[in-house]
């Protein structure tokens, strides 16, 4: 059995180094948040690099406590973030695109715009979507075969 003392300090140093890397990722996210040109680009700099930081911090906590149980307790933290961060990123990105909170010139290609225009052209010949919806609601239910189970029977 090795002497416990050097091992303890090595583990502590590794944990501290992981914290520094996580902090650097946070700093990069912050800098990206300030420097990227439009909201949709800033979205990329935010949150998602920090999930890696979160994983590093979780490992650091388990190393610091030297306990597998602590790691197990922290699994939900990572799982929650892995499952929810893409959803919030999608929601924010969708809101940003629909509000036009981006610089069209910064896009090399925009393959969504033609489809939005096409949908608009067929769905609402003049008039806003909400107005049209009140009239066309029963028709909308029939449009498009639904793939959900138990639907449409």
């Amino acid at each position: 059995m090795l002497d416990a003392e050097p091992w303890n300090s090595i583990l502590d140093a590794v944990a501290a180094a992981l914290l520094v890397v996580a902090a650097l990722l946070t700093l990069a996210a912050a800098i990206g948040l300030v420097r990227f040109p439009d909201p949709l680009s800033r979205l990329h700099a935010a949150t998602k690099p920090q999930i890696l930081g979160l994983i590093l911090v979780v490992i650091a906590i388990a190393l610091g406590a030297r306990s597998a149980t602590v790691l197990l307790l922290l699994v939900p933290v990572v799982v929650f973030q892995l499952l929810t961060a893409p959803i919030s990123a999608h929601m924010v990105g969708r809101a940003g695109y629909r509000n036009g909170d981006f610089d069209p010139d910064s896009l090399l290609v925009d393959e969504l715009a033609p489809d939005v225009d096409a949908a608009r052209g067929t769905e609402l010949p003049g008039g806003s979507w909400t107005d049209e919806r009140a009239v066309a609601d029963p028709g909308d239910d029939d449009a498009g075969p639904s793939k959900g189970p138990g639907a449409g029977s």
């Binding site: 650097l24 990722l25 990069a28 996210a29 800098i31 990206g32 420097r35 990227f36 949709l40 680009s41 990329h44 700099a45 998602k48 690099p49 999930i51 890696l52 695109y97 910064s106 896009l107 090399l108 290609v109 925009d110 393959e111 969504l112 715009a113 489809d115």
Partner: peptide, 22 residues
């Protein structure tokens, strides 16, 4: 990709653009 985006954020202001891909 986390580190790539991080480098992109702190790196020199290049003329990178984004794309909306279908």
């Amino acid at each position: 990709a986390s580190f790539q985006v991080a480098l992109l954020a702190i790196g020199p202001r290049s003329r990178h653009r984004s794309a909306l891909v279908k």
